[in-house]
Computed example of a mutant assay.
Amino acid sequence: MGFDDALNKAKGAAADHQDEANQAVDGAAQKGRDAAPDQLDGGVDKGADAAKGQIDGFGK
């Protein structure tokens, strides 16, 4: 299996399980907010929103 095959498989899994993937991103973002100084919370949220946008795009 090449890199492209693995990437397409991961995209397919994310598309098939968008809710679970988005919940995982939310959980990771919460851990990031907890671990980072408060002034970085906006950046963590921005990154989480971008990741969820990509996940949502896999289903289209």
Rank of each mutant, 00 (worst) to 15 (best):
K31S: 09
A15Y: 08
Q54K: 04
G53W: 06
A28G: 10
Q18W: 03
A10P: 00
A48L: 13
A13P: 00
A21N: 01
D16I: 02
G43H: 05
A48Y: 09
V44R: 08
D5I: 03
D16V: 03
G59Y: 01
A28K: 11
G47E: 15
A35I: 09
G12R: 10
K31P: 01
G57I: 00
G57P: 00
D4V: 12
A50P: 02
D26S: 06
G12E: 14
A15E: 08
L40D: 13
D5W: 07
A51S: 02
D49G: 12
N8H: 13
A6H: 05
A15W: 06
I55K: 05
K60S: 13
V44L: 07
A50V: 06
A28V: 09
G27K: 10
N8E: 14
V44G: 11
F3Q: 09
G2T: 15
D19Q: 12
A15Q: 04
R33H: 00
A10S: 04
K60Q: 13
A24P: 00
N8P: 03
D56G: 11
M1N: 11
A13E: 04
A13T: 03
K9C: 08
D16H: 07
K9I: 09
A51R: 01
P37K: 09
G59N: 04
Q30D: 11
D56F: 06
Q30R: 03
K11P: 04
G2F: 15
A10I: 01
Q18V: 06
M1W: 10
K46I: 07
K11I: 10
V25C: 03
D26M: 02
D41K: 15
A13L: 03
E20V: 04
G43C: 00
A29E: 10
A50H: 12
D56Q: 14
G47Y: 13
Q18R: 08
A13Q: 03
A21V: 01
F58I: 00
A36V: 08
D56A: 15
Q39G: 09
Q39I: 12
K9A: 15
Q30G: 03
D41A: 13
I55L: 03
A21Q: 00
L7Q: 08
N22P: 03
E20P: 00
R33K: 08
